[in-house]
Each structure stands twice: as C-alpha cells, then as structure tokens.
Design a protein around this nucleic acid. Structure first.
Lengths: 206, 206
DNA sequence: TTGACTATGTTCAACATTGACTACAGGCAG
DNA sequence: CTGCCTGTAGTCAATGTTGAACATAGTCAA
C-alpha cells in the first residue's frame, strides 16, 4: 500500500526517491522500508502488473522509473479502503498508512463510507471485550488487563473517529475531490523532486 | 519472544504443541504463528544456543522436543523487559506479548521497574506530540489528525498503565514471585499437555 | 476390518526481507 | 587536478516466512 501510494503521489518516480521520501516522513520508523524491501517490492508490483517500469538513461546513468497502471490504481483503492476498515487488535500501522494516503486517493464520500465501516467494527468488537470483563473468572487476571487496555484505547479511538467522520461530512477535511487548503512550506524537500519528475515525464513523452 | 515464552511455560515441548497452544490463545490472529514460522524459529533459536533440541522417539514416531538453555532464559528476560519498555508508534503487539509473558518470567519488582520506564517514555513522547499540535500550520491537516489519534490513544494507555503499576506495587497483580491466585478451569486444554510433558521429562531423565 | 475422518508432528520449495555493500557522479578544499 | 566527501541509485547473498502438502496414528461408524 505504501509503495503504490508513494508511486501514486510522485510518479514517475525511482526507488531512491521513494526511499528518501518515506524516510523523511519518518515512516521508516514503523514500516518496512529498507532499501531492499523498496526495490524488491517495486519489482514484485511490476511483475503483478500494478506498476509499469521504464528503464531510462538519465545523465549517462541507468534509472528505473515507475508509474501506476490502471490495475495498480484499483489495487491501491482497494488496499486503502481495506486499511481504513479493518480493525487489528494491536497493530494500527495499516490504518495509519491508509489514513495518510486518504487525501490523495479517496473522495469525501468514499472516505466517509470506509470510516463508518470502521466505526461499526470498533463498536462491535468493543461489545465482545465488554463480555470478557463479565466472565472474568474464567480467564487469567493479566488477560483481563490486556482486554481492558484494548477497551480503553478503543474508546479513545472511537471518539477520535467520530470527530473525523463529522469533519468529513462537513467538508472540514481535505480529500481528493475537495480543495486542500494547505500548501507545503517553500523549503519542503518535495519541491526538489519536481525537477526529476518533470524530466522523467518528458523522457516518457508525457 | 513468543516462542521462548511458550517453551518456558511448557518445556519440554514440541512444535505442534506450541502451534496448538498459540492458536488457542488466538495469538495467531495478530502474530506470525504459521507452522513454518514456528518450526523455523525453533530451529533458529536452537542454532543460536537459546534452545536445546532433543530428537526423541515417542510411540514409534520421531519428535523434536525443546527446552530452554540458560542463555535462552536470559534472552527471554531481555526480550520481555524490552517489549514492556519500548513504545512503538502504531504497533502494540510486542508489548502485548511481553505483558502476557510477564507473570511467568518477571518478579513484581522487575515488572514494576520496566513498566515505570514505559510510563516515562509515554509521557515524553506525549510532550513531543503536543508540540506538533502547536506548530500545526507547517504540517498537512491529516498529519495533525494522525498525531491527535496517537495522543488520545496514549492518554488512555497511560491511565491504564498507571493503574497496573499501582496494582503491581500493592501486590494485586500476579507475577513469578507472588501467588497466582488463579487456576485454569478443569476443562482447560492445558491439562491435555501435561501427560506429554511428563512423558518427555522422564524420557530425558528428569 | 474396512474405510473415512480427524489429530499429530513436520518438511520444503517458493517467495519476501534484510542491510551491508557496490558503483559512480558532483562538489569542493588544498 | 588530486583526493576526499556526500548524495544518488541499486544489488545480492544470507536469512526469514509462508502455507500447502506429507506421513503416520488414533477413532469410530458401518
């Protein structure tokens, strides 16, 4: 999801640019973004038909530049929707990736629908955990504690999620079909990539 | 950590027993407990000297049975302490594994010390996130939202953690050096493993 | 006692991940 | 113009992970 999302935002783009960008987002702290993973993942996605790979020569040097295919765009949409909806017990990283890609790939209505699915899922699993508290004699005490942590944390996430859904419905949240109302500061490293991107585009005849 | 912990609790034990046990804990929902991972992981830990492997013949059938070494016990202690202390942004699973192993490997005082380290770490990173809210103009709005989620969730975890630490200090929490005050119900599948364990023990001359 | 099914215990080839390492271009101090 | 450093772009052998498949033992109805 992260690779497809990065290609989506920066295409046409090479592996090193993605690596640099993800590192600057500090994504490397919690996601697998070793160089090997990035280049391997890009190759796999190309093999699966989600990316198109162009081997260019740029300044006397070979560069592999990637673009999304239609299938890749669909896959990304699916992955982001799934990441927003799925409730994992202890690992929110897929949700965080999906949420950070949300403004670039989803319309307000798509986002709202996925987040409502998540809200319902959270409410349901919360009911299950409430049950564990009830029959707490049948379960070791530290397991009950674990359930309590999940419960408390989920209450907090639910409150946050309700607010996001409200803001989304009220148009207070940027998505692909609304105005961002935000521009990166002029010293943002993203600007450095624009020159490369434009050069790659013209080489590909865009 | 999970493998060492499981061996610690059930040793001498074979791979299939661990697989069955972890599945019954529903750990397989959020941890990598495919058969291949388990057998591969046990082999790796044996190669590293943390486990001792005995190839027994049980009922005309070959079985590989594992026990912890001293080095394995030390490694487990280290891993559990690290898992309790380390604050990962979006992935609590290492903490949950460590927390679930806490009662079998740590004394009350060891546990309290590790959890206090965690509390301090949580308080510190919360301060960092409060800063992000301050300079929120320099950051895209959905990134601010992500930070808010982390903040809210961490407030909840901190409240939970303070309670656990209090209970630990007051002796209201079972650890390796205190009475459990809890026994599994008589139909617990854990009892089924005792026969195998005893047989393995006698085969190994214990 | 046959045959069908489930439970036990494990293997392995395909696939993915890791991170140290290679290679080279450009800048720049001496 | 030499040598050294930094930044760019990527490779690869070692290691880890996956899950379908294997082999055998027990169970139980027909």
């Amino acid at each position: 999801m992260l690779l497809l999302g990065a290609v989506r935002i920066f295409e046409p783009v090479n592996g090193y640019q993605i690596r640099r960008e993800l590192t600057s987002w500090q994504v490397d702290r919690w996601a697998n973004v070793n160089p090997g993973s990035i280049y391997g993942g890009l190759a796999t996605l190309a093999r699966q038909g989600h990316l198109l790979r162009h081997d260019l020569v740029d300044g006397g040097r070979e560069v592999s530049v990637y673009e999304l295919t239609d299938s890749g765009r669909e896959e990304l949409d699916r992955l982001v929707a799934a990441g927003l909806q799925a409730v994992e017990l202890y690992d929110r990283s897929a949700f965080m990736v999906a949420f950070s890609l949300l403004p670039s790939v989803m319309t307000t209505e798509q986002a709202r629908r996925s987040l409502v699915v998540r809200r319902v899922a959270l409410e349901q699993t919360m009911a299950e955990f409430a049950e564990i508290k009830m029959r707490s004699e049948a379960v070791p005490p530290h397991v009950v504690r674990s359930a309590l942590l999940w419960y408390d944390v989920t209450v907090a996430e639910l409150a946050w999620l309700r607010e996001v859904i409200d803001d989304l419905a009220a148009g207070r949240f940027p998505t692909a079909d609304t105005d961002w109302g935000w521009l990166p500061p002029p010293d943002d490293p993203g600007w450095q990539m624009n020159a490369d991107r434009e050069r790659y585009r013209s080489m590909l005849g865009r």
